[in-house]
């Protein structure tokens, strides 16, 4: 079968039907994502996995650009924590960014992303570190005092229990009051993926309506 053949040839490849059943994607869309995955995973080392340098190259057109948030996203996509992103991990992680994915999943992903040291909390120092990282990558010049006041003000708004850190419950309430902070968690491209990466035209003999 077509899928078994691919699985043999490409380590980490997973059956699109399985991936479609676990995500908001159709089988055709998973096939199209495989086209994108192939491009990304062969840009430096053609081994069927996305390495961090390949991820950086895809995001920034620069394989050695260091970026705190790209690192965090890569680490969260790398569900098995083996240093590379496999096809199944790529599809499952991207599915959270689908316009139809549950908001709960988007909130959870963003929380993990901002919980830099994976303590289960977003701490004052972590928030400060992230704001500083953004300032370093932009041309904005904001004084330390202003940075501190933005961070203090945000912590005061989000940290309802007043213990100096934001837990998941507080995060949910904060996001509910400020929904725009999840804007990066939705990728409109994922609704038209088969147009951008039309592998289904060649590969899929199955109509999504038949599944």
């Amino acid at each position: 079968c077509f899928c078994l053949k691919k699985a043999k040839q490409h380590p980490g490849y997973e059956d699109p039907t399985t991936l479609a059943s676990e995500t908001p994607f159709t089988v055709n869309e998973v096939e199209a994502l495989y086209d994108l995955f192939k491009k990304l995973s062969s840009s430096i080392i053609d081994d069927g996995f996305i390495h961090k340098e390949e991820f950086q190259l895809a995001l920034f057109r620069n394989r050695s650009k260091q970026n705190l948030f790209a690192d965090r996203v890569f680490d969260l996509f790398d569900i098995k924590r083996n240093g590379v992103i496999e096809f199944g991990e790529f599809v499952r992680s991207l599915s959270i960014f689908h316009p139809n994915a549950p908001n709960e999943d988007k909130m959870e992903f963003a929380f993990k992303l901002y919980d830099l040291r994976q303590t289960g909390y977003i701490e004052h120092e972590e928030l400060r570190e992230m704001v500083s990282a953004i300032l370093n990558e932009s041309d904005l010049e904001i004084s330390e005092d202003v940075v501190e006041s933005i961070v203090d003000k945000t912590m005061a708004e989000a940290d309802l229990k007043g213990d100096g850190k934001i837990d998941k419950e507080e995060w949910k309430e904060f996001v509910a009051r400020n929904p725009s902070i999840l804007r990066n968690m939705t990728l409109p491209y994922l609704k038209q993926i088969t147009l951008a990466f039309p592998s289904f035209v060649l590969n899929s003999e199955v109509q999504d309506s038949d599944i």
Binding site: L36, R61, N67, F69, R72, K153, T154, N178, R183, N184
Partner: peptide, 25 residues
């Protein structure tokens, strides 16, 4: 001025803007 630090991060972060994965290919 930015309303809160998370708003600032999500608006400004290039590393957390995955649309580039599609646009740059």
């Amino acid at each position: 001025a930015f309303f809160n630090a998370f708003e600032f991060i999500s608006s400004m972060s290039s590393g957390f803007d995955l649309s580039s994965l599609f646009e740059n290919q």
